[in-house]
Design a protein around this nucleic acid. Structure first.
Lengths: 127, 127
DNA sequence: CAAATTTGTTAGGTTTGCCTTACAATTGTT
DNA sequence: AACAATTGTAAGGCAAACCTAACAAATTTG
């Protein structure tokens, strides 16, 4: 499918970028840094990296925008996160915070196929 | 619980070491290397690392043995792997290989609490 | 047992992702 | 507009994990 194979770290960045963008119609490095608990300079690096990979457009001191590919990828990660959250929270009964933490980590390592099965499963259970 | 916080990589190593040890009553770096798809030199490094952390005993050109802590830790990881495998294989219906791959990756990131809930869940479902 | 093969180790490199520090650009405030 | 504060970037470092290449120890085998 997506032959880009982002690292967990870059997936975190693009996910954060997208959600912050949705909320604010703009993205500040400071916010990304806060959210991911990293320094502003690390955000700069990651942005450079994502731009190189063709996922965002971003020049010096410019607002970022998503490429089609970047947007799709971000949505994929977010989709994974949401279904995993539901699984941990609604089915396993973890509290909200721990469900979210687990989803955050698992979303980077679960296969697409496993995700699809999980979607069907969660939906079946909660029918 | 375990305040050691092994990296995913070191967890893989100790898991492999333990399973190979169980099977052969001894561990060769070559086998570990094959199994984890790394070079022998990387295994040497990892062993040094695990020994420093007090999980195994291992001197130059010596057989390794596990400390109590190391053995407990290995068993923990293996336990996680097994329950995750069951979940992916028996409940989600992935094929054996993909179930195993997913278990291998998720075992390093899922919380102990989530694991406990998963154990209960899988056991309840399969009652 | 001596030579050949296999195995373990070391040294030195690479990549990724983070950091700190310092500076540049932008924005906000009087 | 001028100064202050905030934000973005660049440079240089560090640690984890991996690698290759070369060598050392151990094992196999003719």
């Amino acid at each position: 499918m997506n032959e880009l194979n982002l690292s967990a770290s870059l997936e975190d960045y693009i996910e954060a970028l997208y959600e912050i963008y949705e909320k604010n119609q703009s993205v500040k490095a400071v916010e990304v840094a806060k959210r991911l608990n990293v320094k502003r300079s690390s955000v700069t690096e990651a942005l450079k990296n994502l731009a190189t990979k063709g996922l965002i457009n971003h020049g010096r001191y410019e607002e970022i925008t998503f490429t089609k590919l970047g947007e799709d990828l971000a949505k994929d990660v977010i989709k994974k996160h949401k279904i995993l959250y539901r699984f941990f929270y609604e089915i396993l009964g973890l509290d909200s915070e721990e469900a979210s933490e687990n989803a955050c980590r698992v979303e980077h390592v679960i296969s697409n196929n496993a995700l699809d099965k999980l979607i069907s499963y969660v939906e079946k259970i909660e029918k």
